[in-house]
């Protein structure tokens, strides 16, 4: 049975210490009540464990994490799961700017919307957004995968390396050197498996849409300088 922890009247340090103590005692799951959208909750969780926030959290929730599972039954502020090494972060509501920025691995699932700069500089892992995402998502992505079921904002997938993006809705405007590629059989299978695993309640709606997703990758024109690409470089620099 899950242990419960009430945030009321506690400082952030007291809450995070209590979460770590629960995990150290080997408890399967900790349910955190009344998080009150406060910042820095559930950061640097370095052991396999499950922490469920029953409400919204503030900035940097699940940041610097390695191997834990964090669920947020609400929305989150800036820097969700920032620089995570591995683990799973699930948000039932929406996320603020910079969700899953610079993650190296693991999975971040946002059921509603993500704001600006989602998944920038990702070095691995999966970012799955059930709704829309904002300006400059995927900027300078090095590895990993971004899946957005809804629309994406301007400067999408700008200056990327090897991150692969899939978009189910409209693309506001592709970023520099971002190109749309044909979906392969592997892509279709990957999307179906991803939705089956992470958004099963929406599978009936998403599955027929899979073939209409756009795959967006780097056009590789910015990987090495070539003077015939001067026009693109002028825009970027």
């Amino acid at each position: 049975m899950a242990t419960e922890l009430d945030c009321s009247g506690k400082t952030i340090r007291e809450i995070n210490t209590a979460i770590r103590e629960h995990i150290a005692r080997g408890e399967d799951a900790v349910v955190v009540r009344n998080p009150g959208a406060r910042h820095n909750l559930g950061v640097a969780l370095l052991q396999p464990s499950t922490v469920k926030f029953d409400g919204s959290v503030g900035y940097f929730c699940g940041g610097l994490m390695d191997g834990a599972t964090v669920e947020v039954n609400g929305s989150t502020g800036w820097g969700l799961a920032e620089s995570m090494l591995s683990g799973t972060v699930i948000v039932r509501g929406s996320a603020g700017n910079g969700a899953a920025a610079t993650i190296r691995g693991g999975t971040v699932v946002i059921h509603r919307h993500a704001a600006a700069r989602a998944g920038v500089a990702m070095k691995g892992g999966l970012l799955l957004i059930g709704g829309n995402c904002g300006y400059m998502a995927g900027f300078m992505g090095q590895r990993g995968t971004i899946v957005v079921c809804g629309d994406v904002g301007e400067a999408f997938a700008d200056s990327m390396y090897e991150t692969v993006c899939y978009v189910g809705g409209e693309v506001g405007e592709l970023g520099n050197d971002a190109v749309i590629e044909e979906l392969t059989a592997e892509d279709l299978a990957f999307l179906e498996a991803t939705f089956t695993e992470h958004l099963p309640e929406r599978l009936a709606e998403l599955k027929p849409r899979i073939a209409g997703f756009k795959k967006i990758v780097s056009g590789r024109r910015l990987w090495n300088f070539d003077k015939t690409d001067w026009d693109v470089w002028q825009q970027v620099v």
Partner: peptide
């Protein structure tokens, strides 16, 4: 500016989203 303000006056109101650019 932060959800902490919304939570303080309307605990559990839900549906909170960050505004997009522009």
């Amino acid at each position: 500016t932060e959800e902490i303000a919304i939570e303080n006056a309307f605990p559990g109101i839900g549906g909170v989203r960050e505004a997009q650019a522009k």
